[in-house]
Write a protein that binds this DNA or RNA. Structure first.
Lengths: 331, 331
DNA sequence: GTGAAAGCGCTAACAT
DNA sequence: ATGTTAGCGCTTTCAC
C-alpha cells in the first residue's frame, strides 16, 4: 500500500507538499501539483484513515447502539442514521445489546474517544444511574427512552401526545372498551404512552379496568399475541387495543384472527412505529408514524454540534409524527 | 484521556511493563503488576484502539455492504454478522448502497486495508467486471449474488435446489398453474431460482406460459403487489405463485386479497428468505428459510481465515436451508 | 511555496 | 523481568 512518503519520493517533493495536495491546502506550485497528481495516480495512493485520525484526534466513526438490528424499527432507524452520518463524513459502527442491561453497559464502556467521535444509543434496560456520568467520554444522544434526570441530549417524539391521539382515534371510531398492550414499568416510553392513553380516556369520561392494561417484557410478535389471547379471554373482552409497537400489534391481530375475531369489526388495533410492513399487512395497520429520517438526522446533527464544541444546555429534540389511519381501525 | 505513558509514570514503571500487563504478555513482577493495576484503575485507562491497530497493522473493523438495512432480510443478516464478528474482536461498519451500482462501486473503492480488515458484501447491481480485480485490497466475501467467474469467496444457499423444493411443494399441494414473481436478468439469484422453478415443472411434465414469469426490478412489497395484479388479470390466472423473496410474497398476498382472492384457497403463495414477520402474517407465509446465522458466521470466518494468510483456492460455501410450510400454501 | 522534524498512542525489537 | 527506542502513516508547527 502506497504511503504519503512513497508518493513524495516518486514525485520528487516532500511529504508536506503531497499532504497539501491531498487535503487541498494552501498554494502549491502548479508544476509540483501536477507531478504530485501523477504520482498519486501512479501509486494508487489512498490515505490511511486510521493514521490520519490518530493525528487529527478524531476517529471518523460514530457508534449506534440498538437492541437488535433484526427488529424492523431498528433496521429502518439504522438505515437513516447511516445516511445522515455520511453527510458529516462519518461511518457508522453498529452494536447490538439484545435490550439487556449488561451488554448495554458493556458496550457503553467499550466506546471511547479513541474508537468513536460520538454515540447514538437506544437503551432499553439501562438505569438512570448508568448514565448520570457519561460513560463514554464522547458526545452521546439518547433515542426513545428518556431517563429524565440524565444530563444527556435526547431525540424522540412526544409519546404522551402520540398515545393520546392514537386512543382518541379509537374513541372516534366508536370504541369504548379500549385496552393497551405493552405496559412495562422499566420502560419510560411505556409509562408515557400509558399516560397518554389514560388522558384520552379521561377526556371523554371513559374508564379503564386494570385488566385492560396488558404488560409486555419484550415487544415482539409473540408477546403481542400472548397479551391479546389473555385480553380476549376476559369476561368482557375489549373492542379495541392500542399496542406500544407494531410488532406487538401484528402479533395481537394474528392472535385475534386465530380465535375467530375480525379486525377491525370485532376488535380494532392500533400500533406504534409504522414499520414498512404495516402498510401491506392484512389488515393494514393503523399506527403512529414518527418521522424516522428526521429522528436520525437530528441525532447525528446533535453529535456533530457537540463534537464541534457546542456546550449549550442539554437538549431534548421533539420529532414530528402522524397517525396513519389504515384498515385495522376502519375496515 | 489517560495514555499508557501516564499510567507508567503513575505506577513508576516503564510503558512496556504497563503494555505487558494490559495485554497479558510475559511475566511481570507481582509487585509491579499490582502497582500497574492500581494506576490503571486510578487513571481509568482505556487503550486507544486506533493507535494499537495502526501499530499492529490491523484496523479492528470489517465492513458489511448491503442495499438497505430497512429491508428485514438485511437487518436480520446484519445482526448475525455483528454477532459473529464479535467472536473475532471485530466491530462492524455498515454501508448502504440502495442496490445501485454506482454506490456499490464507490463503497468498494472507499474501503481499504486502512479502514477495514475485510468486507462482506451483498451486491445487487455490480457487474462481473467490477470484481475481477478485488477493488478493496482486503479479504472479501460475496453474499447471495454469485458472479460465477469472479475470484472471490462466496457464501450462500443452493438457489436452484431451494427453488425446486419450493415449487415441488406447490405441485404436491395440487397446483398446476404456477407462476413466479421476481424474474430479473441482472440478478444471478433470480436466474438460478427461475431455473429451479423450471426444473420442478419439468419433472412432472408441467409447462409454464411465458406470461407466468413476472419480472421485478426491486424486490419490495409494491413490486410484488403489482406483479400479482398483472398475473390475476391474465385470461387464465395462476393458482399458485412462487415469489423470489418474502416482501414480494407479502405484497402479492395483499394484492390478491384486495381483488377478492383467498390465499391459499384460490391462489397459494410461497416466499423466500423467511423473515421474522412471515411467521405472523395473515396468512402466515410458506417460505424458503436459509440458516441466516450460519450464513453470517461462515462469511465472518472466511474473512478471518483469509486475513490470517489463508490463500487456499476460492471457496463457495453452501449454507443449509429448509422449506417452512405455513398457511399460505396449506390454509 | 516547500522541506525537516516532531509527535499522536501504541507495540515490538533490542538491550539490560 | 523490565526499560529504551524506533516507527506505524499522517498532520502540523517551524524554518527556509
Amino acid at each position: 500500500m502506497a504511503t504519503l512518503k512513497d508518493v513524495a519520493e516518486l514525485a520528487g517533493v516532500s511529504v508536506k507538499t503531497v499532504s497539501n495536495v491531498v487535503n487541498g491546502y494552501s498554494f502549491v506550485k502548479p508544476e509540483n501539483e501536477r507531478k504530485v497528481r501523477e504520482a498519486l495516480a501512479a501509486t494508487g495512493y489512498k490515505p490511511n484513515v486510521g493514521a490520519r485520525n490518530l493525528r487529527r484526534g478524531r476517529t471518523g466513526f460514530i457508534a449506534l447502539m440498538v437492541p437488535e438490528l433484526s427488529i424492523p424499527y431498528f433496521g429502518e432507524l439504522a438505515g437513516g442514521v447511516i445516511t445522515a452520518a455520511h453527510t458529516h463524513d462519518w461511518s457508522v459502527l453498529i452494536e447490538q445489546t439484545q435490550g439487556m442491561r449488561d451488554p448495554e453497559v458493556a458496550t457503553l464502556a467499550s466506546l471511547g474517544p479513541h474508537m468513536v467521535d460520538g454515540a447514538i444509543i437506544s437503551p432499553e434496560a439501562l438505569l438512570t444511574d448508568d448514565l448520570t456520568h457519561n460513560p463514554t467520554g464522547v458526545p452521546m444522544v439518547l433515542l426513545g427512552e428518556h431517563a429524565l434526570d440524565v444530563p444527556i441530549d435526547h431525540v424522540g417524539i412526544d409519546n404522551v401526545q402520540a398515545a393520546r391521539i392514537a386512543v382518541r382515534h379509537l374513541i372516534s371510531m366508536g370504541r369504548n372498551r379500549i385496552a393497551v398492550i405493552g405496559q412495562n414499568p422499566d420502560r419510560g416510553t411505556a409509562t408515557q404512552r400509558l399516560a397518554g392513553y389514560h388522558d384520552a380516556l379521561n377526556e371523554v369520561g371513559l374508564t379503564c379496568p386494570p385488566e385492560y392494561v396488558a404488560p409486555a417484557v419484550r415487544y415482539h410478535h409473540r408477546d403481542g399475541a400472548e397479551a391479546m389471547a389473555r385480553l380476549l379471554a376476559l369476561p368482557e373482552a375489549p373492542d379495541a387495543v392500542f399496542c406500544f409497537n407494531d410488532m406487538l400489534a401484528h402479533g395481537a391481530v394474528r392472535a385475534a384472527a386465530e380465535r375467530g375475531y375480525h379486525v377491525p369489526q370485532d376488535i380494532a388495533v392500533v400500533g406504534f412505529d409504522n414499520t414498512e410492513h404495516s402498510k401491506y399487512s392484512l389488515p393494514s395497520l393503523t399506527t403512529i408514524a414518527p418521522d424516522k429520517a428526521a429522528l436520525a438526522k437530528a441525532a447525528v446533527n446533535l453529535i456533530h454540534e457537540r463534537s464541534n464544541g457546542d456546550s449549550s444546555p442539554v437538549q431534548d429534540v421533539q420529532i414530528p409524527f402522524t397517525l396513519e389511519v389504515r384498515e385495522s381501525t376502519t375496515g
